[in-house]
Design a protein around this nucleic acid. Structure first.
Lengths: 145, 145
DNA sequence: CAGTATTAAGAGTATTTTATCTTAAATTAA
DNA sequence: TTAATTTAAGATAAAATACTCTTAATACTG
């Protein structure tokens, strides 16, 4: 079961990293983040660019540049982030991939799946970046030891 | 959010089809199934082969051959099927894709994600092929009208 | 037994996703 | 000004997933 795409996984990990590592500091260097998280610099850059364009982050060029939260990470839910990285139809697709499926033409799984989707939505909506970022030990976000 | 792979989607749709279409009949022709469900015959064949090998279906060659349930579809849960089509680690992966994540080295999402996984598991475990197959109108399983 | 419909297996192709690399422009600090 | 750093766009490559095609073996029907 692949809930999140790689860009989403990487994006969330980077944002959690930014919560703890970015405290006090001004901007956090992207190259450094990429190394600490074992993510390709260029790949991570693209992901973070989309989060900057979406208004979650602010960036600064030049020496001591990098990224930083545009608003309090407490006010950014995982759902906000995933809508950007996964697309707006994240959480609204038919389990069986049937195009016409919906409340008025439900597939056999539609109703019970709708219940799950609400729960998933609640989880992502009520989890903010600050809480997940604070609770994590940074080495946990790495891919290799 | 891609919960199921295409082979799983197709496999489940085919099994639901088999529940309604296969009642009374002996074997159901795979070529006919493929046409009714808008799935490539060869692709569907492979998926059904793995379900036959897993013991859910029996097949017969020659004229009037095809597939049929090896046991009552009431006794086959979606989870049984998905374990075969998605692999045994279906439902046990870290949301953030972190390799070491587990109860003893949890990632920031591990605990809340574990709760969701249990719910997903319950849904799939307590839904059997018979009930979803019976409740469906066949045209709902098609991709195009 | 002969013909044929079907399963079965695997090679091969296409598409999508993920990842890398290159180049250049813009911005900032010292 | 110079060096460091991000932004941006796009070419390319690698890997995973999805799909198709070919061939062979099997087993049923008449």
């Amino acid at each position: 079961m692949k809930v999140l795409s790689k860009p989403s996984e990487y994006g969330l990990r980077a944002l959690m990293f930014l919560v703890t590592k970015g405290e006090g500091k001004g901007y956090v260097n992207i190259r450094e983040m990429a190394e600490e998280l074992d993510i390709s610099f260029h790949f991570l850059t693209k992901i973070l660019q989309s989060l900057t364009q979406a208004g979650f982050l602010v960036s600064s060029r030049g020496p001591n540049g990098g990224i930083s939260f545009a608003r309090n990470p407490q006010q950014i839910s995982l759902l906000d982030v995933l809508y950007v990285l996964e697309g707006q139809d994240f959480l609204s697709k038919c389990l069986l991939g049937l195009p016409g499926c919906g409340d008025f033409a439900p597939c056999p799984m539609h109703n019970s799946w709708a219940v799950m989707r609400v729960q998933l939505r609640n989880l992502f909506e009520h989890t903010n970046l600050s809480e997940v970022g604070q609770s994590v030990q940074l080495e946990r976000l790495r891919l290799s030891p």
